[in-house]
Structure formats: structure tokens, C-alpha cells
């Protein structure tokens, strides 16, 4: 059963495991430095489909199916599927789950969805409300561009602070088990907004939420950044990462050396011309499921704080002049189920 410590953190006393995970990407991800770790990479960003929305649906479905395959769990044995994406009305996930026959919770947490879905899956399993849950999310560069920015062939210039939406998906199967990676604690984030209105500077908009959640977790658990091998944020990119590190330093938790960001890992920022880095739900999801989880499973990384960050605006709110609220949910993912075994 989850046990609340401090004011916003839940310790998952049974330490549920991520028994299966898979990452799917497309062409640009294939050219990136993490290509070798993906389970499936498509040379064709349309995945053979007629629309980008269908491509995203297929990609998410593929990630879920691969994750289930890797831990030999049948679709019918899944108690709950928690999934979301960036498209209006979350159609990427809804259509992906259409053929899945799994009880489905559709989530919207913008780019924080991997953390959000994984938090819920972990809490459901730890609270014995479910035996097996799937947490999944996806984003597609082309469907996101249309929804949030301009048509693909429009000749506009991107600003240096803008980020490149990852065409990727990640899925995790959470269940009680005696195998790493274990989910040890979650801190559900609160919305933070320090007044950033620039839709091309999402990193700056989301960094305050990340700092807030991280400080909350350290204070609730009485730990410090040095107690972890890696503090991994979802898609703060270059600008947001710098701001987070600066804010944490000011709060008395220097962590620049322990921090990395999925948006800075998935692409070669200079060679692939992605400006401030990668972004999108699929960014955090695919980096976690391709590169990070296997390293925790083999104990190369022992304690990781994973925190996908989301910018909770819409094109409408932005055009109406509203600033961009950010959110970040944190998960403590570990190679050990508890402190005793770690020693």
C-alpha cells in the first residue's frame, strides 16, 4: 500500500516492478545517438499510414504490444491501460486502445504524460487495485506541428529556444515482481507558472514546475541530489535544463553534475539541428524505455529520479495571451526494492 510521507510524496511500499518496456521511434530518432537502444525504428515517419494521426496511433500500439511481448503478458491480462498524447481529445491513445480490449484511462499531461501514467500505474499496483497495468504515451513531430504550430511545408524559421517534437512512443508494464527496475516512490506535481508566454520556449515555461516537484521530493524524503545516480527530466531541453539547475542551486540543492534531460540525449543537438533539444511526450517515454530502464535493470544505474515535464497550454490559451503553466511528476526508479537490499 502506498504510504504518504511529507506533504506530497507517496512511498510505494511493495515496490512494483516495470516488468516490460519498449520504445519506438522514427527516422530522426534513428539518426540520433540512442538509436541502438530502441526496440523498433521506422525509416518512414508515416509508418505506412495515410495520416500523421494514424501513424501516431500505430506507433503507440506497437510500443504497447512490444512491451507486453517482452514480458510475455497477454492483452487480456492487463487490468488498466493509462495512456495519453498531445493530440486534441487524446485521439492517439484512444485509437491505439481501440483494438486492445484493455480498461482504458485516457490522460492529458502534455509532455509529462509518461510520468503521469507511470505514477498512476505504480499507485494502482502498489495499492492492490490492479495486478498488471500498462503506462504508455507517444508524440509525433508531424501531428504536433499541425496542432501547435504551422503546416509542415510552411517556410517559417524556428527560434533558437524552440524544441523538436520527438516522433516516438514508450510503454511500460507495471506489476508486482522480484525484478528491477523497481518503482519506489512518486511525487505528483503541482502546477507552476512563472509567467512565460513564449510558446517557442517551453523549457523555460516548465523548469519552475520541475524545480518545485524536485524540492518537494527532497524535503518529503529527507534526501539530497547526491543520494541518486541520475536526475532525469523529460524535455526541458537546453534552456530549461540550465534554468532548473540554476533554480535548484538557489534552493540549496546543487545538482548540475547529476542532471540530464531526455531532450538533450535523444538527438545530437548541433548535428541534427534541433535547436534547444527534443520535446514531446515521446521524448521522455522513448528515452526512459530504450536507454534508462535497461541500465537500472542491470544495476549500472541504481537510483534514478525520473521526472517528465509538461506545458499545459493550448494554442487557444496562448493566443489569448495566457502564460504557460508547467507540471512535473516525479518517480523514484531503483535497481533495488528497498534500502536494505541496496546495502
Amino acid at each position: 500500500m502506498p504510504k504518504k510521507i511529507g506533504s506530497k510524496t507517496l512511498l510505494l511500499t511493495s515496490s512494483p516492478s516495470i516488468i516490460g518496456y519498449a520504445a519506438v521511434g522514427a527516422k530522426k530518432e534513428k539518426q540520433g545517438p540512442l538509436a541502438d537502444y530502441f526496440d523498433y525504428l521506422s525509416e518512414d515517419s508515416s509508418f505506412g499510414e495515410k495520416t500523421w494521426e494514424k501513424a501516431e496511433t500505430l506507433m503507440q500500439k506497437k510500443a504497447i504490444e512490444l512491451a507486453l511481448q517482452k514480458c510475455s503478458v497477454q492483452k487480456t491480462d492487463v487490468d488498466f491501460l493509462f495512456a495519453g498524447d498531445l493530440l486534441n481529445q487524446c485521439i492517439g491513445s484512444a485509437y491505439a486502445s481501440r483494438d486492445m480490449a484493455m480498461p482504458f484511462f485516457g490522460l492529458y499531461g502534455a509532455c509529462s504524460t509518461m510520468s503521469e501514467s507511470l505514477c498512476l500505474a505504480a499507485m494502482f499496483v502498489d495499492g492492490q487495485l490492479a495486478n498488471r497495468c500498462v503506462a504508455a504515451t507517444s508524440s509525433h513531430f508531424c501531428s504536433a506541428e499541425r496542432q501547435f504550430r504551422f503546416p509542415l511545408e510552411y517556410g517559417g524559421q524556428r527560434t533558437p529556444t524552440s524544441q523538436w517534437t520527438v516522433t516516438g512512443s514508450g510503454a511500460c508494464v507495471v506489476a508486482p515482481s522480484k525484478q528491477a527496475p523497481y518503482l519506489r516512490a512518486v511525487t505528483v506535481g503541482t502546477v507552476a507558472d512563472l509567467g512565460i508566454t513564449d510558446i517557442n520556449n517551453m523549457g523555460a515555461a516548465m523548469a519552475p514546475a520541475a524545480a518545485q516537484t524536485l524540492c518537494q521530493f527532497f524535503s518529503d524524503t529527507s534526501t539530497r541530489p547526491e543520494d541518486y545516480d541520475l536526475i532525469l527530466t523529460g524535455d526541458l531541453g537546453f534552456v530549461g535544463s540550465r534554468l532548473l539547475e540554476r533554480m535548484m542551486q538557489a534552493e540549496g540543492y546543487p545538482m548540475a553534475k547529476l542532471h540530464n534531460d531526455c531532450g538533450l540525449m535523444i538527438y545530437d543537438r548541433v548535428k541534427q539541428d534541433v535547436h534547444a533539444g527534443g520535446s514531446g511526450c515521446g521524448c521522455a517515454a522513448s528515452v526512459l524505455c530504450s536507454f534508462i530502464l535497461p541500465q537500472i535493470a542491470c544495476q549500472r544505474l541504481k537510483n534514478v529520479l525520473f521526472m517528465a515535464t509538461g506545458a499545459l497550454m493550448s494554442p487557444t490559451s496562448n493566443q489569448q495571451g495566457e502564460s504557460i503553466p508547467g507540471i512535473a511528476h516525479l518517480l523514484h526508479i531503483s535497481a533495488f526494492p528497498n534500502e536494505k537490499e541496496a546495502k
Partner: peptide
Amino acid sequence: ALWAQQESP
């Protein structure tokens, strides 16, 4: 806003 401006290329 000042910090964000300083860190943005």
C-alpha cells in the same frame, strides 16, 4: 523572466 532571458540563446 530575467533568468529565462539570460539562459535563452
